[in-house]
Computed example of a mutant assay.
Amino acid sequence: MAITVLERLKLELHHKDYFKDEEYSIYLKENNLDPIDTYNKEEMQRKLLFTIIDILETLVNDIDLMRKIEDPTTQLSISECYKLLETRIQKIKDRIATLPDPDDEDGNSNIFMLFSKNRW
């Protein structure tokens, strides 16, 4: 089953409506993805994950937005939500570090991660 890049982004975000489709499309385009293209994991996964990080970092940096999206059933404070988002962002960064970069011609895109003190 083929899905668009925008649909795959929303799937990765668990269909949470943090933003409108037009805004999601802007984030995708900033990461060189076309929202209406058919999603190809091998070629697009890294860029999609970078897009997700951009979106989550926007949430982390906007407390008013976090208040709008917080779920009253979870009873989490803003600071707890912040910590959970930061943890998720780091996990995505760690995941990206393990993926080959299809745009890297010599295959050395992730070598710097092996010798870096800071992960990001």
Rank of each mutant, 00 (worst) to 15 (best):
L11R: 10
D106I: 13
K83Y: 09
I78V: 14
L114A: 10
F115M: 09
E57R: 15
I63G: 00
L48E: 04
L56S: 03
I36Q: 15
N110G: 08
L13K: 02
I26F: 07
F19Y: 15
F50Q: 12
T51E: 03
L13Q: 05
N31Y: 04
L76S: 07
Y18N: 01
I63Y: 06
V60M: 09
V5A: 03
F50A: 05
R88C: 04
L85S: 00
T73K: 12
A2D: 07
E30P: 00
E12G: 04
S25T: 02
L28R: 05
L114T: 05
T51M: 06
L85K: 06
L48R: 01
W120F: 08
I111V: 15
R88N: 11
E12I: 06
T58N: 13
S25P: 01
I92N: 03
L9I: 05
Q75S: 11
D94H: 10
S25G: 09
D106N: 13
R8I: 00
L49T: 03
I26M: 07
V60A: 09
D34H: 11
Y82T: 13
K10E: 11
T87M: 08
D64Q: 10
H15R: 10
F112L: 11
L99I: 12
Y39R: 03
L84Q: 14
K41V: 06
